[in-house]
Design a protein around this nucleic acid. Structure first.
Lengths: 199, 199
DNA sequence: GGACCTCTCTACCAAATGGTAGACATGACG
DNA sequence: CGTCATGTCTACCATTTGGTAGAGAGGTCC
């Protein structure tokens, strides 16, 4: 195989992210992933000993990517909490648009066996705790609307992943996934979150 | 069979709503639904000629229930748009809590074949259009924050269905599904939406 | 009583699924 | 050259899946 391409393992992982994210883990067979990559199912099973292991690797990879992106956005943002939240939204929006399946995969968690879901939760927990503590701090300072910081984090998460993974809802209100449509959506999402969080 | 119970068809539909909503259409087999109902798979296939037909019936049933609930809430609410939105949230929250799978099923739409998704979209379209028109009107009157009414409808929908179908996200911030926890969540959700929509 | 209808069942089936066993090619290394 | 490791393949396999065919139990109507 051409050595300039990604190694087989990465290509399998990539295909699996897209397919699992778009249609769900159970709905996608190893054969389909293999076909997508241009390889046989047994090659998939060579790199990932079982479907479960592949799912684990996919979740791990997605979590890692998102954690990196969010971390960077937070570090580079200004001190104003609304600006900072803005930065996170923009940061998450970009990869999510490039790869619609990314956030879809996060949503998959709730229908995974508890063991796998837990492993991922542990992975993301530090991020959640930092966010919650940060929200509480800024609420205390009066920079954000006073509310339950944990639930605000969950609600913000639900809003962003929800809107990014519900193309049907957007289609129902006549939205189109063009470049200008995307910018418009991003700006409306930011305004919505700002309003929801501002004091 | 005891005639006091629900007829078999209804019991199949009920079980299918719960299972499809919780784990996804593809992940649930007819055998599993049948076992849940206490009947053989062939009995399921007697009432619904194919799995597709069962999925259609399930979606139709859920859409009908939600449309009725939302309609009633709107009719009985006061004129203030924020109150009215409150009423809809409360109205949707109740059945959603009683049956966590209800909103999960709505989320399933995005991973269904286009034909089925479209059929459901047509069913819900009038509701969406009424909501959008209503939001625009109240924005014009200055009763709501000025924004794109369609996207606001989609964002509100994403927030509500998102938070109701992401138990993992709620668990990650330490939330517990007790009665008091539910009331707390509902109130925080209402405050969040109010803030996001108020002028 | 017999014809018919309704409902659930047993008995199958072909296709797809996740997974095992092992052959075969290629190249690195002693 | 021979040996070993790596990576992909063909050949199977047991199980599960959605679905068909048709038997039989029970009630209703003439």
């Amino acid at each position: 195989m051409p050595s300039a391409e990604l190694p087989t393992r990465e290509r399998i992982l990539d295909a699996a992210i897209d397919l699992f994210g778009a249609r769900g883990v159970d709905a996608v067979s190893l054969d389909e992933i293999a076909r997508d990559v241009g390889v046989r199912k047994q090659t998939v099973l060579y790199w990932f000993a079982s479907k479960d292991e592949l799912v684990d690797a996919v979740l791990e990879s997605v979590a890692a990517e998102l954690v990196v992106v969010i971390d960077a956005a937070i570090r580079n943002a200004s001190d104003d909490p609304l600006e900072r939240i803005d930065a996170v939204v923009r940061a998450v929006f970009r990869p999510a648009v490039r790869r619609p399946a990314l956030l879809g995969l996060l949503r998959e968690i709730s229908r995974l066996p508890a063991a796998q879901a837990d492993r991922l939760r542990v992975r993301v927990q530090p991020l959640v705790e930092r966010a919650t503590a940060y929200l509480r701090l800024e609420m205390d300072k009066g920079h954000l609307r006073r509310a339950d910081p944990g639930l605000i984090a969950a609600l913000g998460y639900a809003t962003v992943t929800g809107i990014a993974t519900e193309p049907q809802a957007l289609a129902a209100v006549g939205w189109q996934p063009s470049a200008v449509g995307l910018r418009h959506l991003r700006d409306e999402l930011r305004a919505y979150l700002r309003a929801a969080l501002a004091p």
